[in-house]
Structure formats: C-alpha cells, structure tokens
Design a protein around this nucleic acid. Structure first.
Length: 822
RNA sequence: GCCGGAGUGGCGGAAUGGCAGACGCACUUGACUCAAAAUCAAGCGGUGAAUAACCGUGUGGGUUCAAGUCCCACCUCCGGCACCA
C-alpha cells in the first residue's frame, strides 16, 4: 500500500474501472424491490457549480446506500437542454444553439464523471434531442385531444427582455423569473394547459405526500388558493341587468353597504354612460388600467374608487346600495365584482371610512362583548349574526349554510369554489424549444400534426433577432406546409412550448429511455415509479414540482402510467454560499468544483459538502473546512494501513477489555450511521460519527497498542463500507489494497450486532437538586438502592447533602441519579 | 397583513425531557525539525488563581426531581404569499 493518499491517481483509475465494468448499470427486474432516486436534471449552462455538486453528492450517497441495502436502484442523469441561454449564445456569438448546448453537455458530463457519481449513463436523456421532444409533442397532442390544451386570447405576462410570454408561476414579484425584468401585460392569443381543471386534486393529494417538507406543501397550497363561498346576483333595475358577486362571507350579506366593480368589469361602460361625472370616471378607469401589475396589486396602494351613479338591490334586504368602481377589485378573480361589507372586511372598512359609506354591524363576537360604537376596524372572525333578519342569532357557520341554501331556493346563485391558480400559459415566442405540433389551415382550421409525422423538427435556417415575432417564422422551410386533413396550403404554429413541460415528464422517460415506439412502456414505468426520493433546490417548490404533479395526473388519467403523483419523497437542499452570500461571478466569490476536484479530489469535495451543514440548510463554503475533510481522509488512509497490518497477525481467542470497548464503539457507530441514512438525510452527523470511530482507532495505536487480528479485520471492512457511499474512490482503493473481493460498492451494508453493544457498567452523573455534583461508574444491573448508596458516598455529594433532609431520590438506570434535599 | 422556518461558543453545527457545546474549522501551547510544511499531543463558552463556585442555548414567565428540548407571552432574522373578496 502507498504511504501517501494521492486522490487524483486513484480517482481516475476507479472511474475507468467502474465504467468498463458497468458497475452502475440498472435493469428492469420486477422480482427485485426497486428504489428510484433522482436529482433534478440540470440546464447545461456549461459548467457545474457547487449547488450541483451538493445536489449530486446527496443523491449519490442515497443511491449507493440503497444499493448496499439490497435495492434495485434507478439513479439516472440527463439534461434540461432547451431554453433561452442557448439562443442568447446564438445571438451574441453566432454559435448554433444546438452546437452550444451539446458541447456544454459534454463538458458538464465530464465534470460529473470526475465526481464519481453512480449514474446509469445508458439512460441519459436530453430534452432538446429529437428522440425526446418527439414524445413531448406527442404528450401535448394527448392533452389537446382531451381538451386540456387550448388556445385563447388573454391578458398575458410579457417579458420584453426575453421577448416572450410567461406563465403566472414564472412571474416573481412582478418580474421575470429568469432575467428579473419588469413584466408587462399584453393581450395575445396563446396556448394554455388547463391546470385549473386539476386544481382540486393537486390540492387534495398534497395530503398524501408524507415524504414532502411541510413548507413546500404549504407553498403549493397557497399558490392553488382554494376558497369556498357563494356566487349570487344583485339586480340593477336601471340597466335591467344582474350583477354577480363572489363572497366567502355570505353570512355578512345583511351588512352590504355598496357593490364594487373592477374598472375592467364588462358592465362598467353601460353603468357610467350617462353619469354626470363621466369624464372623471373615464379618467379614473384609464389611469387604473395603465398601472403596472405591481402598482395595481400592492396592498400599500391607497384604496381609490368612484361612485357610478347607479344602484343595485340587495336580494336579502331589498335595500338599494350604490355601485362603485375601485382599484382594489381584480377583474380576473371571482366575478370581478364584490359586495362591500365594511363591518366584516378590513378593505371594505377602509374604503367605507374614506368615502363616508354607511357601516352596518352584522356580526357580534361569541362573547357578545363588541361595542359597535367603539369599533375602529372590521370584525372578521366568527361569531353570531345581529341585524340580519331571519338569520339573526345564528352562528356565522350556520348562517352561511342557510344562506347558501337560500340563494339556490331564490334561484339567484349557488355555492362556488374559487382558485387563485390560473391556467398554464405554455406558448413561448422563442426558437430553442419544442415546436408546438399544430397546423393552421384556412379551410379546416386548427389541426394537430398526425402522430406518425412527429416529431415536428426544429429548422436550422432561422434568424434569431428577427424582431417582434417568433424566430421560427423566419425559417423558409418551416412555416409553410400542407393541411393534414385537406392537403391544401397551411402554416405551422410558430411558437414553442414552455421548457417546464420538457421537465414535467423526464423522470418517466428515464425508466425506458430508448423506447422508440412510445414515450415509455407502462409496465416498466409502473415498476420504477414513483420516484422514491427527489432531490433539488427549494426554488422549484411551485414551478417545476406543481407542473410535474399536474402532468403525471393527466398521464395517469390517460392510463399511460398507474401512479398519479411523481415524487413520493422530496428533499429540498439548502444553497451553497461563500462569505454569507450566493456565489456569483459579479461578486467574484465563485468556487469552481473543477478546481477543488483537481486540488483535493472528488472524495474530499463530496465529504466536505455533506459534512459542513445539514442538507436542508444553507452551507457556507469554507476553504479551511475542505482542508479538514482532506486531512480526515488522510487519517483514514493511514489508520486503515495500520489496522490492515494488525489483521495479518495471528488471531487471539479473547479480546482485552479495551478491545471489547473498541468493538462496542464500532457497533455503536454502525447503528448510528445506519439510522442517520435510513429514511433520514443526516449526512453531517453520520460523518461525524464515523470520525469518532476513526478517533477511537487512533487512540488505540497512539497508546502503542495493537489490535487483535480478527477485530482489526472487522473494523477495516466495516469502516470502508460505512464510508463507501460518501467517498467512493478512496474506499474502493483501500478495499482492493486490503485484499477484499469484488467492488466495495457491491457489498452488503454492514449490520450492527446488538450483542456487541452490551455494556457491564456505565458512568453516570449524580445530581443534588438538579446540579451535577459528581460522577460514578455503576454496574448496569445495580439496584436502585445500591446506586443511591454509592451516590451518597461520593464526597462532593455527601457535602451537599450533609445536614439536609433527603426528600426523594430520582434514579434512572443507565442515565442519572438526582438526590432532592431540603 | 397572513402562513411557514429558525435563534446554542470566535465560526459550521451536536444533543429519544437526564452531565449543553459531539464532530469539524479557527486559535493557543508543546513534541518532531536547522527551519517550515505535514503529523502527533494538550487546551479551548463566560467570570475566576482554581482540579472551587457561580453564570450560560433570543427575552420574560410557567410545568417538572430535572428544560436547548414541553406550555404561555413576546423580540429578532430568514423564506413564501400578498387588495384573491
């Protein structure tokens, strides 16, 4: 064995060995229990960053551990390789997006391989390749046939910097998720997927996702935003129309002081056409409509409104209430019209105060203690109805149920569930994406490209900065085609599909990556799905994770796959920071994985990144900490060397007391590390526990002692097996150097022996009145009486007890003795 | 505003209600060395001469023989949503 640990040599050697021997190849085998572990596939930007290294290191430990535990493990990797940056490279540097992307993939794959990640590379997919996007188009067509993909005119989010529309989920704080540019609203006809049809299931099934972090489920829940209420009509006799409002508080209907519409509401023009202050109203509407989304929806903005001059009739009181228009009502939620109840809604209260509208109190709190003359705000909690006709005296909940029934009986409305979630806008006015497989014929209208003609290939003769339309329109070969129905001249759809669709089914393609007859075989996909453990950044809590859940539910309904949730377990890792902030080129605090691997080796990089912080927390990169991990691997190298020599000596029948203790330490560590890895992701404490074992091994040799050969052999084996998932190269090298058979990664995970953990005696603390006053070693079988006697005999304890009365003694075997005195 | 999460040494962080600070980083001292690096050893929450004692897990209360851990109130920071009726 070499004296010195030289990572670079052994890492290259074993990576080549694993590749040649197909160590990480996985096969479909319904007789074996499976485990599917998946890290979010990367966008091929060109280089791995530390966030990737963290993500893949976590996944690789899980994959290797599960393999050693006997599972048939699927652990694939691929590329989310459509998207804007490739197109920008084309515009700025004149490189074809395809060439740029494929060379980035080559580089990043090389970097991944240098980390010793145990992927089954035979299953690699790239979403930009024809054999993949053919099936993305096919899936789009299935959505279309089910009526879940449709084109409509809508006010959409437009990013002028990326020159494309965006889905609601891709607008963060009013800005583009990719480039941070302020998003505008535009009226355009665009393709949507009907995710709202699945809103209820997407919400309800969150409860089945036990392996997801609570906060991610909550974020999705908030995003879906289900609310239960009533939709019902107020008459407007003056224009002979009914105006529908939506409310979750129909129990407050006797307190309606006014009805208020969004400025964009379709009735507004008719309501104000003969108003004396029409000019003011027009100016107000114009001003509100031109506000940005941010200004419009900010709670900071003062509530503003104008009276239209018309009145509506409260269907319950028969009372006339004024109709207003106001900036705080949104046209695209509910009906775009709201009943104003200042007593029961904080916004309405502010609005009523500002414009001196009447406030009618209709809910008293359960204790009947509200003094309505003294109120300075709305009362929004549950309570009992007052001033509410026949409903007076009912609880808010009972009144709600009674009133739901009443509006149905009157035929003016019904119970209604509303969602914040909007349909998913999937058109993109970009080139580097999946062409939408639709053809427009003047005679036959919108037609799907027949399935046997897929894929609709991306043309290469395009101009990238061609102006206001999609680059595909600049291709001479692409646009013009024939109608699949009548054969007449027709044109192709020129938008591409949001790349989030590509990434909403890739985990299914991995299960059957080479299938050229179907997107994936159902039987094979059913064997591997769900993904048992998905690992990635929290930034996808809504976007990717919600879309994937939706797509899988649709594929399930189409009977293409049996599961209806993609990811059983979800682990959201923290970010990798440097000096307290995110690594970025502009801050100049980027640590390159490649440099670290070159300098210390992949094993050190992996070990450090898993040891430095719990997986779900942010991790501050520390160069000194990396040195520490490297130092530890050197310690392992040397001590294995030493213990391996011990193992060559003749065996003894009997272990010394110290050796027994060392063996107990080994088995304690086996138990603890297994617990930290099995169903948990406590990599940091697993590693620290292994460090404790190594320290115990050194303590032995530092005192000049040797270790019995059989025990030494056991320790060497188990230590290498424990470390194998974390640091695959050094353990493989030492495994072979020590003369063990096969690959360390194809061994069974070592079990601990309960018997080895047994102790005869333990050291416990002795407290007097809860303060530690001494320590003693007692036999584990000692009686409570003996323990008390021994505790009281301790000089310090005796001192504190002297002259006092012992009230009681708490004696917890193997834990503590506490003498309570007065 | 609403909903989550988190506050522990100089730093990252450990602790099924039972000896707070495991493990690591940094630091100090010593051994080895001509010297340095590497390695090894000892120390390392605060006050303190101390192997004495007291204090100490964001703050204030409480439960308990015993609280970082459980309960109540509050403070601060981070994240998500945010005029969704």
């Amino acid at each position: 064995m070499q004296d010195k640990y030289v990572a670079q040599d052994i890492e290259k050697k074993w990576q080549a060995y694993w590749e040649q021997n197909h160590t990480d190849k996985t096969n479909y085998d319904p007789n074996k229990k499976k485990y599917y572990v998946l890290e979010m596939f990367p966008y091929p930007s060109g280089n791995l960053h530390m966030g990737h290294v963290r993500n893949y290191s976590i996944g690789d430990v899980v994959a290797r551990f599960k393999r050693m535990k006997g599972f048939n493990v699927l652990h694939p990797m691929g590329w989310d390789s459509f998207g804007m940056p490739a197109e920008n490279a084309a515009i700025q540097r004149g490189i074809a997006p395809k060439d740029w992307t494929l060379s980035n993939i080559d580089n990043m794959r090389r970097q991944q391989k240098s980390l010793g990640l145990s992927y089954d590379w035979d299953r690699e997919v790239a979403t930009c390749k024809e054999d993949y996007y053919k099936w993305t188009q096919w899936i789009f067509e299935q959505f279309y046939k089910k009526g879940l993909a449709f084109k409509k005119e809508a006010k959409v989010n437009w990013c002028d910097h990326c020159h494309t529309v965006l889905a609601n989920e891709q607008v963060i704080d009013g800005k583009c998720w990719r480039c941070d540019n302020q998003v505008e609203k535009k009226d355009l006809k665009q393709w949507f997927l009907k995710i709202t049809a699945y809103a209820d299931r997407l919400l309800k099934d969150l409860d089945t996702l036990d392996g997801w972090p609570e906060r991610v489920k909550l974020m999705q829940k908030n995003w879906i935003g289900r609310s239960e209420g009533a939709q019902f009509a107020f008459d407007i006799p003056s224009i002979n129309k009914k105006i529908e409002v939506y409310t979750t508080r129909i129990d407050t209907v006797y307190g309606v002081s006014y009805v208020v519409l969004a400025p964009e509401h379709p009735y507004v023009q008719e309501l104000i056409k003969d108003a004396p202050n029409k000019a003011d109203l027009d100016a107000f509407i114009h001003r509100i409509r031109n506000l940005s989304e941010i200004e419009r929806t900010s709670t900071e903005v003062e509530k503003e409104g104008l009276f239209t001059g018309k009145y509506a009739l409260n269907p319950f009181t028969g009372q006339e209430v004024p109709i207003w228009i106001a900036n705080y009502v949104l046209v695209d939620y509910g009906t775009g019209a709201v009943m104003g109840v200042p007593a029961g809604d904080e916004r309405d209260y502010k609005f009523a105060k500002k414009y001196k509208l009447p406030i009618k109190w209709v809910i008293q709190n359960p204790d009947q203690t509200l003094d309505f003359d003294q109120m300075v705000g709305a009362y929004t909690d549950a309570g009992v109805l007052v001033n509410s006709g026949d409903y007076t005296g009912m609880t808010t909940e009972d009144a709600r149920q009674a009133l739901y029934k009443a509006i149905e009986d009157k035929g003016i409305g019904h119970k209604k569930v509303n969602y914040r979630l909007r349909d998913w806008l999937i058109s993109r006015q970009r080139y580097w994406g999946v062409p939408i497989p639709v053809i427009y014929c003047d005679k036959c209208g919108e037609q799907l490209v027949p399935e046997d003609q897929l894929p609709v290939k991306l043309p290469e003769d395009v101009v990238f900065d061609g102006g206001a339309i999609s680059p595909l329109a600049t291709s001479k070969t692409f646009m013009h085609t024939t109608c699949p129905k009548c054969g007449g001249p027709a044109t192709r759809e020129i938008d591409t599909i949001d790349t989030f669709i590509d990434s909403s089914w890739y985990f299914l393609r991995y299960t059957d990556a080479h299938n050229d007859k179907e997107a994936f075989n159902k039987q094979i996909a059913d064997y591997w799905m769900n993904v048992d453990q998905y690992i990635g950044g929290i930034e996808h809590a809504i976007l990717h994770l919600l879309y994937s859940r939706f797509v899988v539910k649709v594929l399930h309904d189409l009977d293409l796959v049996s599961v209806d949730e993609p990811f059983r377990g979800l682990l959201t890792q923290g970010m990798v920071l440097k000096d307290g902030s995110k690594m970025s080129k502009s801050k100049g605090n980027v640590v390159s994985p490649e440099e670290i691997v070159t300098k210390y080796g992949a094993d050190t990089a992996r070990l450090f990144i898993l040891f430095a912080a719990p997986v779900d927390r942010d991790l501050d990169w520390s160069d000194k900490g990396v040195e520490g991990s490297y130092r530890f691997l050197n310690r392992v190298w040397r001590i294995i060397n030493t213990y391996h020599e011990f193992a060559q000596e003749a065996k003894r029948n009997q272990l010394t007391k110290e050796e027994t203790a060392l063996r107990r330490e080994l088995h304690r560590v086996l138990k603890k590390v297994t617990e930290d890895l099995d169903g948990k992701f406590n990599f940091n404490t697993a590693i620290s526990t292994i460090m404790e074992l190594v320290n115990a091994m050194y303590q032995f040799t530092d005192q000049g002692k040797t270790v019995e050969a059989g025990l030494a052999d056991e320790i060497v084996r188990d230590l290498l097996l424990l470390l194998a998932p974390f640091t695959p190269h050094i353990t493989e090298e030492l495994w072979h150097e020590c003369g063990y058979e096969g690959s360390v990664h194809q061994q069974d995970w070592p079990d601990y022996e309960e018997k080895a953990l047994a102790v005869d005696e333990v050291e416990i603390a002795v407290q007097v009145n809860g303060k530690v006053r001494g320590k003693m070693t007692v036999s584990v079988s000692a009686s409570k009486e003996d323990m008390q006697e021994q505790a009281l005999a301790l000089p310090k304890v005796a001192e504190y007890v002297a002259g006092k009365q012992i009230i009681k003694a708490i004696i917890i075997p193997k834990k503590i003795v506490n003498i309570v005195v007065k």
